[in-house]
Amino acid sequence: MDIQSCVTIINEWDIVAARQLGRNVAKELGFGTVDQARITTAISELARNIYLYAGKGQICIDKLYDGGKAGLRINAVDSGPGIREIRQVMEDGFSTSGGLGAGLPGVKRLMDEFDIESSPGQGTQIRASKWLR
C-alpha cells in the first residue's frame, strides 16, 4: 500500500485533503462523475466524523482488484471514544451533535459495501467500498 494514499485527519483542512485524494483516485480508476461525487461525499462524512467525534484519525484510500473488477475502498480509522450503539447510529436522523444524522446511514447507501467495527474506549474502524460498474 502506497504511503501517499492516506491522510491524517486532525483539523478541518484535512477533510478537504482526504476528499481530494479520494476524488483523484476515483477519477484515475475510471469512475463516472456520479460515482466520484458519491465517493467524495462518503469520504467527507467519515473524515468529518473523525474530526468531530474522535479528534484524530486516518483516512486511507485503497484500490481494489478482484478478478476482472476494479474498485475503491475507503478505510477510516481512529482511536477515539468509539460508538456504543452501532445499531442506533445506523438509523437515519440519529445524531449526538445536532447534525442531520444522515452521515453513516448515508455513506452506507452511497457505497456498495459497508462495514463498521467499534468498541467503546478503543476506537472506530469503518470500511466502505465501491466497485466499478
Binding site: T33, V34, Q36, A37, R38, T41, E45, D92, L100, A102, P105, G106, R109, L110
Partner: peptide, 14 residues
C-alpha cells in the same frame, strides 16, 4: 445543482 450532486444528496437522505 448538478446531477451527481442531486443523486448523492438524495442517497444521503437529504
Amino acid at each position: 445543482i448538478q446531477p451527481a450532486v442531486a443523486i448523492t444528496l438524495i442517497e444521503l437522505g437529504i
